[in-house]
């Protein structure tokens, strides 16, 4: 079965490491007669740094309050130049908690001025950090699409993954977002939630669990939102640590491999997204960024070197973690892909 085993380095100690896999992702693609090539870049996803007010157990960024890596104004300006020059339709801002970066609001407002749709991956609780109390109003004023992780509509599961007390704060933050119109009918202000499994299993069918969230959050907490995206936990970084310590790594990888779905490949986010690191380096996705697997060597490596014609059709860099995006209905920053 193993045609081209991947060399693995088991120790991690906070360093990038890949999950063990008995078959390479490239081999599985080839078996299905598929190649993974980039389409036109439609989304510039800027990871503004690893600083976060939380330290979630599944975090693929290893983000935490002790991290110091954050984007500079100079790198932000390079990203804005790329948005303007190449008319990239969407700016997707992620972290860490992006709002903790000093130039976060500059990036959002100038990104909007550049004509891009702006999405922020907002962890909800950061709203209660000093200086961020007016985030709902800021988001609304800039017509930002807010995408927030809430792994479950109950406290036990949410706190188990994201930390004690996070659920209660998250609900309060959602109410504040609702109060300025987010997620409510007719406001035009989009509030989407992200579900990911609290453990070593695959997410349920997206529409089914979305209906549960809508019913339960409305009934229990008087909270509304637009869409729920299901995301598969990526077996890297802190989640890989948990898989290993709980002795779930082998079974989880087998589950991902067994659930490989060729129909997901065309819609994978790496095909139309370009990921920018806090230092301006370019990656095919945020996961590759954390693994330090850069874009193909025959294209520019920094955001200031980005040329659309060069990047369209490039080979996407893959490894064993990619099975995390092709399992079942697939997984992306926008939920399922097939």
């Amino acid at each position: 079965m193993t045609k081209n085993p991947i060399i693995q380095i088991r120790p991690r100690n906070g360093k990038p490491a890949l999950p063990l896999s008995e078959i390479s992702f490239q081999d599985r693609l080839a078996e299905s007669g598929l190649r993974l090539r980039a389409a036109k870049v439609e989304i510039l996803q800027v990871n503004v740094g690893k600083l976060c007010n939380q330290a979630c157990k599944h975090c693929h960024v290893d983000a935490s309050p002790t991290r110091t890596e954050i984007i500079s104004r100079e790198t932000i300006d390079h990203c804005l130049d790329a948005l303007r020059k190449h008319k990239i339709p969407t700016l997707d801002i992620t972290g860490g908690a992006p709002e903790l970066v000093p130039d976060f609001r500059y990036l959002v407002s100038e990104g909007r001025n550049a004509g891009a749709r702006a999405m922020v991956r907002h962890n909800l609780t950061v709203m209660f950090e000093e200086g961020n109390e007016d985030l709902p109003e800021f988001f609304a004023a800039n017509d930002v699409e807010v995408i927030s992780s809430l792994p479950y509509f109950q406290a036990r599961q949410t706190d188990a993954q994201r930390g004690n007390g996070v659920f209660e704060k998250s609900i309060e933050a959602l109410r504040r977002l609702n109060s300025v119109g987010y997620g409510t009918d007719g406001s035009g202000l989009v509030l989407d939630l992200v579900y990911n499994p609290v453990g070593a299993y695959l997410p349920p069918e997206q529409k089914s669990i979305e209906a549960d969230f809508k019913r339960e959050l409305a009934a229990r907490h008087n909270v509304v939102f637009n869409n729920l995206y299901t995301i598969t936990n990526m077996p890297i970084a802190r989640y890989l640590d948990w898989l290993r310590s709980s002795k779930n790594e082998d079974a989880y990888m087998q589950k991902l491999i067994n659930a490989f779905n060729p129909a997901t490949v065309e819609g994978l986010m790496c095909r139309n997204t370009l990921s920018v690191e806090w230092r301006g380096n370019l990656f095919d996705c945020d996961f590759n960024q954390m693994l330090e697997i850069g874009v193909a060597k025959n294209v520019g490596q920094k955001i200031e070197q980005f040329e659309p014609s060069q990047f369209e059709g490039r080979q996407i860099m893959t490894n064993s973690h990619c099975f995390g995006c092709t399992a079942g209905a697939g997984s992306s920053c926008g939920g399922t892909v097939s």
Binding site: Y201, P204, E205, S208
Partner: peptide
């Protein structure tokens, strides 16, 4: 157990 979790039961 896994199937129930993966179909959205708690």
């Amino acid at each position: 157990t896994n199937s129930s979790l993966e179909n959205g039961s708690n």
